[in-house]
Amino acid sequence: MRPIAGSECRKAAAPLVLRDVRVEVRQDGGAPLRVLDVPALHIPSGARIALTGPSGAGKTTLLHLLAGIGRPSHGMIRWGNLDLAGLTESARDRWRRQEIGLVFQDFHLIPELSILDNILLPLTFGAAGRTREFAQRAIALSERMGLPNPHRRAAVLSRGEQQRVAMARALLQDPAILLADEPTASLDAATGETLGTLLLDAARERGATLVVVTHDPHLISRLDTVHRIESGHLLETRP
């Protein structure tokens, strides 16, 4: 697999550290309900982690906390020296845009846009905007993901192709952290396997931290560490 231009200049990923993190939701005037309780979690830089557990256990909530999408009700989340829980919403937006690559179960492409425009879309959120370097990188990424024609509309793509576009979109800004929420659950086994490989290879090549919420036993077996969540509690870790 050929490397993608521009990836050398990025700084290395920092470790993610969670301490006394709790997420509570208040339901219609009732007592607060604790949906997540993580006394301590250390994810070293470059680690490849699977988060498993039954539905509704709090896996996605934890993933969103790591992405800075939500804020914990209590506790501390640090990325290197950066205190995520202490950042304002817009600062977390910016941090997420630059440092995080997100892959969803349902791909979430914009069907009206082309493959290329979907990959480049996150650039239009900030001040930087689209540049020729990024456009070239997007084309290179789509080729590497096995998408030869980047001008096709996303609406006409197969599910596997859509997830390839979503992965190229996640990798565009060469993020230090890759977060994936059930990336293979909507795909058939063979496609899931291929995309799992692409995701793992991209993370390994960049030295990025990879956290994958998944039930896919094959994908779990290919990750270094497995964390299990049940009823909001981080139960066991299996190296």
């Binding site: 997420r96 845009r97 969803f104 996150p122 959120f125």
Partner: peptide, 10 residues
Amino acid sequence: VLRALGAPAV
């Protein structure tokens, strides 16, 4: 999704 990908609320 756009917000998750880093789009600010504005």
